[in-house]
Amino acid sequence: MIHFENVGKRYAEGGEALSGINLQLDAGEMAFLTGHSGAGKSTMLKLIGLIERASYGQVIINGKNFSKLGRRHIPYVRRDIGIIFQNHKLLNDRTVFDNVALPLVIAGQPHRDIQRRVHASLDKVGLLDKERMLPLSLSGGEQQRVGIARAVVNKPPLLVADEPTGNLDPALSAEIMNLFAEFNQVGVTVLIASHDIDLINRMDKRVLVLDKGRLIDGAGEQGEVLQ
């Protein structure tokens, strides 16, 4: 599902954010991406979300080689990747329902399907009763769950989350992580960037460790746990 082959990213301002990354994440796997601030977690997720392009090497996601992808095709590739952001990136002037419906509207889904699928998605994250509310009237945890509902509403095969529990208390964080585990159980590939070591250890999943732009652990075998 995610395949990195000798991938590096240099920024014009100087410095190499990622260098020589080799990574294979199979379909249906769930993994955590961890490391210190500035180790390259965000850059790696940006490469997967096609927000940035690699300076060298091959990024192949869901069978598509990103280095050969034209600008025109980017939107269609992004529809197959559910991205969850630390700052939620919700539209604050639209209701929860409209926010979650947006990916379906963008994909031109029939109106009947949109309503049904948005309700199913909101039900999954436990926010069905808040569909008419505006995002800003919800708590941080609830906003994050709206973001998750939006990411999964069009059933992408890959979910990517950038610090999804960044601003949440431990109990809420665990709840969110369990939600991701549930999606993984039905076959969705999940990659979560996080620096919450305790939580990661408790989840007992594969852990990728980045340090100064290099992948120092978890690249090869599956099921490896950070000690």
């Binding site: 269609y76 049904r116 069009n154 095969p157 039905v186």
Partner: peptide
Amino acid sequence: ATRVTSTDAVPKRGTSTVRRPRGKGWLRG
């Protein structure tokens, strides 16, 4: 077709139901 998929709310493995609109439905879309 929609009735078949309507039962599960969670994403399915390796497939995406959202694709670039093509064919007959394209014009309507």
